[in-house]
Design a protein around this nucleic acid. Sequence first.
DNA 1: TAGATTGTTAATCGATTAACAATC
DNA 2: TAGATTGTTAATCGATTAACAATC
Lengths: 217, 217
Amino acid sequence: MVKRKAPDIAVGRLPLYLRVLNQLLEEGRTTTNSQEMGTRLGLSPAQIRKDLSYFGGFGRFGAGYDVAYLCEQLRRILNLERTWPVALVGAGHLGHALANYGRFSEGGFEIVAVFDDDPSKIGSPLGRHQVLDAAQLERVIQEQGIVIAILAVPLQAAQAVADRLVAAGIKAILNYAPVRLKVPNDVKVQEIDPVARLQHMAYYLEADDAAMDDGEA
Amino acid sequence: MVKRKAPDIAVGRLPLYLRVLNQLLEEGRTTTNSQEMGTRLGLSPAQIRKDLSYFGGFGRFGAGYDVAYLCEQLRRILNLERTWPVALVGAGHLGHALANYGRFSEGGFEIVAVFDDDPSKIGSPLGRHQVLDAAQLERVIQEQGIVIAILAVPLQAAQAVADRLVAAGIKAILNYAPVRLKVPNDVKVQEIDPVARLQHMAYYLEADDAAMDDGEA
DNA sequence: TAGATTGTTAATCGATTAACAATC
DNA sequence: TAGATTGTTAATCGATTAACAATC
């Protein structure tokens, strides 16, 4: 009866559940079940029911889950009933792509400020914004009560910028620089490193270097 | 003595080890140890030694690891002694960022072709390339023996494009669309979903919506 | 009710950590 | 040698799965 604290790995799957539920919603479906969700995500039905059970009982015995209701509940659990303002640091190619990425808003996030320290970029338009001087970082973050930042700066600058973000009050960083940032315990970091992901997959590829061109023995 | 097959989760950490080793190399360091690597990555020394032990013994008792040597060995294990040609599908904002991303090459990858099906994009320059007609996808992939693809197309198109990639011989897909792709067992997929990562972190943030502006009770 | 699927408990499986003999 | 750190084994910890009573 006394719920054990949800493990982080289960929390990390909730966004995936939210994703399939939105997908089902778009298909006009009103109910689903752990079997179907599992199939779509490549997870076992048991795992989905277990994960959900850390947060409560959201289904109906014999009938599965109401798509809209479960969706709503997951958004509540994940603190997505509000829109979180996000600071984006770095207005290079990646910064541009992120500033123009449409899925943040439906996900519960909105980039409200973009920073760079390159004088040639400051003031230029980016998405619906103008690039702000990185010198303004602390001021803007504090004035707007921003607690989430996306870090899209070169590797060499990443830790220094992260330190400033943390000092300004940021509590969650989505880090695109290939480095494990050092931050206090109460600050969450998620790292996105496409090269590491490719390298992970390369392990399973045929090492065979030659060949392919046109098969000679 | 008979090594057990390395678990995928350990394989996935090898790129991180490679990353710190490169970092150490840049700092001019010639040796390191599991303690130091662990500190830099936020992992236990035991875990690092265990992970490496699946692939062999690379250290010297009492002296730790030779940075250059371990680096070399990890690149060998991960099949990174060659440069893998990569196909990029999708020439939107994200495609642009990826095509201009400098870290693929040092990681062992090179984007050799960019595809899009938008007539207004086909033929236009992107990085060092010209955007190719997506209709040429199969031909180019087969002719060049490409086995790795990066998928940066809209959600709605993702599965259909993935099907074509697989049919053309692709064995590894880095998927930026927020959907779990259905692929055969011998095809690896890694998914990158920044929104899901932000949502994961949002769970740990203060749910408090108001406040912040200027603290009124 | 009979049928279906949940929520939960217990069993299994796998990953991490601790500990230490091996050894340079 | 004494000191240090590896590679590996065994112990611990945690996550996943199987199974089923609960119940709509």
